[in-house]
Amino acid sequence: TRVSFEVGMVQLGGHALFLSPRDTQIGRGETLQDTARVLSRYVDAVMIRTFSQETLETFARYSTVPVINGLTDLLHPCQILADLLTVAERRGGLDDLTVAWVGDGNNMAHSWINAAQALGFTLRLACPAGYQPDEAILGPAQAAGARAYLVTEPLQAADGAHVVTTDVWASMGQEEEQAIRKEAFAGYTVDRTVMAAADPAAVFLHCLPAHRGEEVTEEVLEGPQSAVWDEAENRLHVQKAVLVSLLSER
């Protein structure tokens, strides 16, 4: 995320600064509200990659420049834009699309739900019990007409799907749960059997980094249906599009 945004900004003719908590007054007790207001006087946009969605939203409320969600525990919208661009490139569009999500009901699953609501494609999510998407995301989307459905087994999700996608079983901040999650997600690996259940022209996506042999096999990740490297490159193009869209309005 950082590299694609920094390179994208430079390619657009701008300049990018990386600020960790140690580089700002936040690390010395300054509030998010104050930091947002100060940085807004210096920069034209802010991309934040943080754990808490609340942190992002608090910063955005007090910022007077655009704030981009680079990733939070709840959502990962820029990644979904790159994923959708990759699918459109491979299929020639997004019409009559069915997407299978296999694994954790995490920020990526939530962003796929939001995309399904916005664009009208079918989304099937196969998640183990206890690791399903947040009902605060899924419920309102379904109530608004999103064709997003929970299923039990990966093969149910993958049946005839045009896209099969997954993510690591333990996301940022969940490293201590790795062993427990590995046991809970047994049977939720995207392998040749899962891909065989999908449409013959289906593509495999993964936001990376991947844990080969856990959420996806080496065979699938490196196989002919894998579009993960195009997907990774498209992060750069999407970040530039987001920046141009936001900065053109200023």
Rank of each mutant, 00 (worst) to 15 (best):
A109D: 05
N114E: 15
I113P: 07
I113Y: 03
P128C: 08
A141W: 00
W112C: 14
A129E: 15
W112D: 12
L125S: 04
G139L: 04
A126S: 06
G139I: 00
Y131E: 13
C127Q: 03
Y131C: 13
G130M: 01
E135I: 08
W101I: 10
D134P: 06
L123A: 07
L123P: 06
D134N: 14
Q132T: 15
R124D: 03
A100E: 05
Q117V: 09
A144T: 06
G120H: 10
L138G: 00
L123W: 05
N107F: 11
A126I: 02
S111D: 10
P133Q: 00
Q142K: 06
T98F: 02
F121I: 08
G130L: 03
A109K: 02
N107P: 08
A109T: 04
G130V: 02
V99F: 01
H110R: 14
N107S: 14
A129Y: 04
P133E: 02
L123D: 08
P140S: 03
G105H: 10
G103Q: 08
A141K: 00
H110W: 10
Q117S: 13
P133F: 01
W101E: 08
G130R: 04
A143K: 15
P128W: 02
I137N: 09
G103Y: 05
G145L: 01
A141Q: 00
A141N: 00
V102N: 05
Y131I: 08
A109Q: 04
G139E: 01
W101G: 10
G120Q: 12
Q117R: 15
C127V: 08
Q117E: 15
N114V: 14
G130F: 01
G130K: 01
C127F: 02
S111I: 14
A118W: 07
A115T: 09
G145W: 01
H110A: 13
A118Y: 03
Q117Y: 11
W101Q: 13
N107V: 12
A129C: 07
A129K: 15
G103K: 10
A100Y: 06
T122N: 13
I113W: 05
L123C: 08
T98V: 14
L125E: 03
N114T: 15
G103A: 09
T98D: 08
V99S: 02
L119I: 09
T122A: 12
E135V: 11
G139R: 03
S111A: 14
N106P: 09
P133V: 01
P128F: 04
V99M: 06
T122H: 11
M108S: 11
Q132E: 15
V99T: 04
N106E: 06
G130S: 03
G103W: 07
